[in-house]
Computed example of a mutant assay.
Amino acid sequence: MRTHQLVLQWIENQLSSGELALGGRLAAERTLAEQLQVSRTSVREAIRVLEAMGVVRAGVGSGPEAGTVVIADPTAALGSALRLHVATTHLPVADIVQTRVLLESWAAARARTDSPALAEAAGLLDKMDACPDTDEFLALDVRFHLALAEAAGNAVVSAMMGSLREAIQSYAGKLTANLPDWDATAARLRAEHREILAAINNHDGGKAAGLVAAHIEGYYKEAGLGPKDSDPARQ
């Protein structure tokens, strides 16, 4: 095992045991290096890995923002990893879309009508109605779907959804070039969004799940990305 991995293992054990918690600070590099009998370079490398994973935030200088603090930001790290693997074509976009359908259908079926996220989703739909810009519309679309996932109250699903949406957001934008009539598609998407939200608010989770699946699959099918289409040249 490389020495920076020893540092990672020690920090993981500290987190698991409760010795180190969310908001807690790691000791200084020199202190950790002496305690673990490794080089400061190994400590620094381990902290960089944890920062990329969204587990810690490393600050320099002095003051309240200085030092290495334990945070919780899995979405950004997972999203970055997924984007890179999609770029290698190891993870076909069509497969990611199918995974998204599974997660969003599950979330829609279990969304809580008293969740503040649903009010946020409704406000996003109003903004989409008055949005002529394609990129802005797609950005609002991302936020709408994340709000629905958040309404289910499952932190892991929310994090995974955020990661998947980030991984395919650029593809959704690129695929608009394949659509015969963006204005017509945007109008259909807006109507489907409202149907999904209405089903959730009416406590019909089964209908909401079916509408979400049809909504997602319909967009990608219209844009030319079929369920078995994993050919990078067509993405």
Rank of each mutant, 00 (worst) to 15 (best):
A199H: 06
L148C: 02
A187Q: 15
L164Y: 01
T185C: 14
L175D: 07
T185V: 12
N178I: 00
V156E: 11
A177P: 10
R194Q: 14
E195K: 13
K174N: 09
L164K: 00
Y171T: 15
R188N: 10
L164A: 04
K174W: 14
H145Y: 09
A199P: 05
R194H: 12
R143F: 03
L148S: 00
S163V: 08
Y171L: 13
H193K: 12
A152I: 01
V142Q: 14
A152T: 03
T176F: 08
A159R: 04
A184F: 06
H193Q: 14
T185I: 08
T176L: 08
A155C: 04
L189C: 07
A151L: 01
A155V: 10
L197S: 02
H145T: 02
A191H: 12
A147N: 08
D181C: 10
E195M: 12
F144W: 10
A149N: 08
Q169I: 04
A147W: 02
R194Y: 07
I200G: 01
L197V: 08
A167K: 01
R143V: 06
E150N: 09
A191Q: 13
L164E: 03
A159G: 06
H145M: 04
D183S: 14
A151H: 00
Q169K: 14
G153V: 00
E192V: 01
A186H: 08
R188D: 11
G162K: 06
D204M: 07
N202W: 05
L189W: 11
G205L: 00
R143Q: 15
I168D: 00
I200F: 04
A198D: 14
S158P: 02
A151E: 04
I168M: 04
Q169G: 10
A177L: 12
N201D: 06
V156Q: 12
N202C: 03
F144H: 09
L175M: 15
G153E: 01
A186W: 05
R165W: 01
R190P: 06
G173T: 10
A159V: 02
E192Q: 15
G173L: 12
N178M: 09
L164Q: 05
E166C: 00
A172V: 10
S170K: 13
A177C: 05
W182T: 09
N201Q: 15
L179D: 12
L164W: 02
A151W: 02
A184E: 14
A167T: 04
N154F: 08
A199K: 07
L148Y: 03
E195I: 06
I196R: 01
N154R: 12
H203Y: 13
L164F: 05
H203M: 07
F144C: 00
L175H: 10
G153K: 05
Y171A: 11
A177H: 15
R165Y: 09
R143G: 00
M161S: 09
A187L: 12
V156I: 14
L148H: 03
W182R: 14
H145E: 08
R165H: 11
I196Q: 06
Q169N: 13
A147D: 00
S170Q: 13
I196N: 03
Q169V: 06
N202T: 09
N202I: 03
L164N: 06
A147T: 02
I196D: 03
S158D: 00
E192Y: 12
Y171F: 13
S163H: 05
L197G: 01
L148R: 03
Q169F: 09
A198P: 01
L189D: 08
V142F: 11
H193C: 11
